[in-house]
Write a protein that binds this DNA or RNA. Structure first.
Lengths: 219, 219
DNA sequence: TTTAAAAGTGAGTAATCACTCACTAATAGG
DNA sequence: CCTATTAGTGAGTGATTACTCACTTTTAAA
């Protein structure tokens, strides 16, 4: 079922988990992703994990705490690469062209999504209903990722590689296109036969042409 | 709360509804959108509608039937304009350029979305968990909208207005961008102050440049 | 080996769940 | 007006809910 999901150990960094704790998390992820958070009962999770129901509440005060324990680390890991590394690289000419950065980002975040498919599904599904998740999202995505991306865009705009439109529009269009691709590829039609390489290339080119500035003379 | 939502009478075409039935539907829409389908109880809906709980089950055999009664007509209405009218217009040169068609579609579907915000939210939220909804979606979107759009794309490709890439890629990129805009505008950041006209124009231009074929000499 | 903390248990809790049913009230065609 | 159909009711159903707690088992440092 969740074969390709990230090892929970990796995700739940720091605190070591017992076998039963791991089984609880794996089972919860499976059920939450399949039926949704509200439609999943704790008794169901316990049964699937081969654990007494009380064991769940020994480690998580409430059912919602369990959800947060699953979903919060994913958000943190998702934004990690945006925080410093990539920005430094860009500013130090590791990515001379916006296209190079885009490609690197798409491949990188695609791998992450594939490894954490179920968990990301849960996150996306539940965000609208839990203020705590919204807050986490704002903190991580809105502030960190957005702020860094804006700097990046302005950097490439100054070099004339990107059209001179508001950076937030560039942000919106770029992420719409990339996530539109990833959602179609891995969530809506995962079973269709995709030519990933060609599709990725087309997606990047679509963004590049759509945003092309005066000096888009790379080829 | 749902001031700008479509009049239910319009949506529930045909069958006439009593006052209480309307109140049930309005209340259900409100609660489903706010807390999700599973997290909303029928007693809560009844209370909000000022109706006995039994009244709900007089008209809808199950809670899920109530959901379907709310969500199914929206899907039908959403795809309606794609079915014939617009395609005919295009083929009869009402929209000479792909850009004209795109603009018309974006404005048209935006109005629809704004009028049916809550209901569309519910639809999007619940699709993953209800096979019946998935089936309806495939029937309407996948078959009707997709098929028509593909014909359109090939038509404009033949005229050299669109790049010669697979039509399904054009479909994906176009809808990603448009819905990315609408979702950001009306669901993620509805309270931000948007310059709708400028943002719409930029979005269209982004798609047009991204897909530009050999004869993109419109200006 | 002793011992205290941590992990695990499962029967038990009150509350809530979707749904039923015997009944009354309102409606509309003849 | 009569009557049959439909709309509406609300107390009652058993099942399930998230969560508790007194208890046992396991773990690991002293």
């Amino acid at each position: 079922m969740t074969d390709h999901d990230l090892e929970i150990d990796e995700l739940m960094d720091g605190d070591e988990l017992t076998d039963k704790q791991k089984k609880i998390i794996v089972s919860a992820i499976e059920s939450f992703a399949e039926k949704g958070f509200s439609a999943t009962s704790t008794s169901e999770i316990a049964k699937k994990a081969g654990v007494a129901e009380g064991t769940i509440f020994r480690h998580y005060k409430t059912k919602k705490d369990l959800l947060l324990a699953i979903v919060a680390p994913v958000m943190a890991k998702f934004v990690a690469p945006f925080i410093i590394k990539d920005l430094q690289k860009v500013l130090h000419q590791d990515y001379e062209h916006f296209e190079d950065f885009l490609t690197a980002m798409l491949l990188n975040r695609r791998d992450f999504l594939v490894k954490n498919l179920s968990t990301v599904k849960i996150l996306v599904q539940e965000i609208p209903f839990h203020p705590e998740l919204k807050e986490l999202f704002k903190e991580h995505i809105a502030l960190k990722v957005y702020a860094q991306f804006i700097k990046l865009v302005e950097h490439y705009q100054a070099k004339g590689q990107i059209m001179d439109i508001p950076a937030y529009s560039v942000f919106r269009m770029t992420f719409s296109t990339i996530f539109g691709y990833l959602i179609a590829r891995y969530m809506i039609l995962p079973e269709a036969d995709w030519d990933d390489e060609a599709e990725t290339e087309r997606t990047i080119q679509f963004i590049m042409h759509g945003l092309a500035g005066p000096n888009h003379s790379k080829k």
